[in-house]
Design a protein around this nucleic acid. Sequence first.
RNA 1: AGAGGGUUGGCAGAGUGGUCGAAUGCGGCGGUCUUGAAAACCGUUGUACCGUGAGGUACCGGGGGUUCGAAUCCCUCACCCUCUACCA
Length: 424
Amino acid sequence: MLQLSFIQEHTDIVIAGLKKRKHVAPETTVQKILTQDGQRKSLQTRLNDLQAQVNQISKQIGMLMREGKKEEAEQAKSKTSALKEDIKAQQEALREVENFLNEALAHIPNIPHESVPVGDSEEDNEVVSLIGEPPAISADALPHWELIKKYDLIDFELGGKITGAGFPVYKGKGARLQRAMQNFFLDKAGEAGYTEVQPPILVNEASGFGTGQLPDKEGQMYKIVDEDLYLIPTAEVPITNIYRDVILEESELPRKHCGYTPCFRREAGSWGAHVRGLNRLHQFDKVEIVQIVKPEDSYTVLEEMRAHVESLLQALGLHYRVLRLCSGDLGFTSALTYDMEVFSAGQKRWLEVSSTSNFETYQASRLKLRYKDKDNQKHLAHTLNGSALAFPRILAAILENNQTPEGIRIPKVLQPYCGFDIIN
RNA sequence: AGAGGGUUGGCAGAGUGGUCGAAUGCGGCGGUCUUGAAAACCGUUGUACCGUGAGGUACCGGGGGUUCGAAUCCCUCACCCUCUACCA
């Protein structure tokens, strides 16, 4: 979240950022926060003062007791009762103000980077690059759900029986391809310097808050009510939270991690006709890359991460485009996000397979993730992450784009991982 | 899941109602000595907030309570360890 000091010093920037995001009432929201913060300060000053007085008296009582001056001690005790009542009132008022501020700050989104185009929806995202050509496939190219049936790669109905809609069962070569992608993506991330981790896929509330899923996106996550835990919607959550409440040395930056996890999303209300097959699932698999970096490096690193994701797409021979998300489509916590979309020949549409973002200090502030510079000064770090990559839509694109009369050709780079070169 | 024990500063580890933000040791940083290093010695070394500043406040796993005063007493929650039970 944004720091109060930042809002104080750069009120205009914050308001402009909120306006860019089409926030309903930027000025009043920010003004209210600033007034309440002023309120907080004066309450705390007064409270500190009262506490100091009580501490002073207590110290005197201790001395009097030791000297055996009981009467004077009793007299001193009586002086504190009024103070204590006052303290209680101040504390309550302070807590109220702090609760308000915490709540308000938690609901202020990150400020979009200056390069983020203004826009209302995904219609307004900016296409920053378009790589490759649509595959030369006959007009009757099948969508992947037909191919999946034809070659018996995934059983959606079976998943529905075992769990429910959106929980597919991968079978045979379908399952093998999943494993191939996992190893291929992890190996590539490893080569790019990311240290592999295998994190928990259930996280507690503090972790959900740290990366910004809570409280904003509570409804998107599956919750284990009995344990107060959430199934992760992305490995970003457990991996970034490795660094919650951590102060790193500047020399330890950047920290680079990758990890494979299943991801769980309720996708409440978004189930519709055009989400057939692998297009949208409640459970899917993904390799995620995460970096913790110095602020001055974060935009260079964002490009580096984007290049890594693109190299994967190129290795797989997929036709793709890169979008710079507009302010209306930009995630709550992100300052700048690139979405990578692959073209799926059977559906003739673009499928998002990666979202790569710079959160600047937004997550770090919630996480209390800092680093010490040479002069021992502490600063919030910048956090970034990206999908590299999400499996289901990659699989969908591979199936649709590589279909031939003989069968589905497997991209060369995956062949050593899955052990076959065609599905027929 | 049952019984018991525990959670203190970067680490180890004292501290059971007042002068304790906290002994001591190790580690870190600065210095003396040395050609240099080691050893020795001296000093220093937590975090957050309020205050222009001097300074103040809070924090000994989290929350609450008793008290003029809590690391220390009480309640509660979380986590860790040991034994038993179970289990991949």
